[in-house]
């Protein structure tokens, strides 16, 4: 592996982590949207809230990490991507602001209309943000971002079949991951009825994701032949791995074994993202700009590798500590019975 490839892999680790952790956060927001009326949804919302409250900010920094590695080590490619795709990226950023702020503030606010407004903002932005990010991935993967500043079409680059596929897949995957994670959390806290609900949802979204995945192959063959060739060529083992892991996860879910189902689901998502990377190797921007061409000066790359290594030494224990602290603590119990907590869904009552 060359220096540039190592760095791009590190960036990809960040991307996968963002996909898994923040993906589950977004998904939780989607379930918040679908949790039903104020009373019926209250306990679910409480579970969602207390599962993501302590970690959402940290989960979110993975994206920042991806951005800064890209802009320092692959500055030209970064400039090309963000300028061509500035519309979905700006909308995604607005979505993140709305989501973060609404989630953070709604529990500190008690007036009913405000809580509804914030709840709706939280839930809706959880839905649209992954869509925009997924459509950005679709745009890059289908070779619609040419090198050069704002060289691509600012509209069709992300309004096209592959981007739509990427967006919808991202939403479904987030919802699926969240259902599995929340099911496991509910089980751990002894809220078995909630665990059941999330299990059903996980199975449902898994079916939908699988169906869309198969349909997606046809979309890709027609709309993004290069990506299709890559996925069915070099990327094939990873795609197969993803499918197998997905099926294994379903078996675990069926048997109510949430924790192994979690691991298998994470593997399935990781494998498909890696499959994308393999399919487009050695290009950063399909079909023109290779990794080596896009990489910047050696001194910069070396400095970054050193920083990433040292940073990881500090970061990994800290993150492990954070998750461990919250996983073992009793935290906020999910209260029985309907509470009068005003539901966040606008107009739901």
């Amino acid at each position: 592996m060359t220096l540039a490839e190592v760095l791009l892999s590190c960036m990809f680790v960040g991307l996968v982590a963002y996909g898994l952790f923040a993906g589950a956060d977004f998904g939780a927001g989607i379930w918040d949207l679908l949790a039903g009326g104020t009373r019926r949804g209250a306990r679910q919302r409480q579970l969602i809230e207390h599962t993501i409250a302590p970690v959402w900010e940290a989960n979110h920094v993975w994206l920042i990490f991806v951005l800064v590695v890209l802009w320092t080590a692959f500055s030209g490619a970064f400039a090309a991507i963000v300028t061509t795709l500035y519309i979905p990226l700006t909308l995604a950023a607005f979505g993140m602001i709305a989501r973060g702020a609404a989630f953070a503030f709604r529990k500190s606010i008690t007036t009913l209309p405000m809580r509804r407004f914030l709840g709706a903002a939280f839930a809706l932005s959880s839905l649209v943000t992954p869509y925009f990010l997924g459509s950005v991935v679709g745009a890059v993967a289908s070779g619609r971002v040419p090198p050069g500043i704002a060289a691509g079409d600012v509209l069709t680059s992300w309004l096209n079949p592959t981007s739509a596929l990427g967006g919808v897949l991202a939403v479904l995957v987030c919802a699926y991951l969240a259902a599995v994670f929340l099911g496991a959390d509910a089980r751990r806290e002894g809220a078995d009825d909630l665990a059941e609900q999330f299990r059903t949802r996980a199975l449902g979204t898994a079916a939908a994701t699988g169906a869309l995945g198969i349909a997606g192959l046809f979309v890709l063959r027609a709309d993004a032949p290069l990506l299709f060739d890559g996925l069915t060529g070099r990327g094939l083992p990873l795609v197969v791995l993803s499918v197998v892991a997905g099926l294994v996860a379903l078996v675990f879910l069926w048997r109510r074994r949430f924790l192994p189902a979690r691991a298998a689901s994470a593997l399935a998502v990781t494998a498909i993202l890696l499959g994308w990377a393999a399919a487009q190797y050695p290009y950063v921007l399909l079909p023109e700009l290779t990794i080596e061409e896009a990489a910047r000066g050696r001194a910069t790359l070396v400095a970054m590798l050193v920083a990433l290594a040292v940073g990881a030494l500090v970061l990994v224990p800290a993150l492990a500590y954070l998750y461990a602290l919250f996983q073992r603590s009793p935290g906020g119990e999910v209260r029985e019975g309907p509470t009068s907590a005003p539901g966040p869904r606008a107009g739901a009552t």
């Binding site: 809230e49 207390h50 409250a53 302590p54 900010e57 989630f103 953070a104 503030f105 529990k107 500190s108 008690t110 919250f326 935290g331 906020g332 119990e333 209260r335 509470t339 009068s340 907590a341 005003p342």
Partner: peptide, 10 residues
């Protein structure tokens, strides 16, 4: 916002 156990706000 980072506190996990938001009490019932009623």
């Amino acid at each position: 916002p980072q506190e996990a156990d938001a009490g019932t706000p009623d």
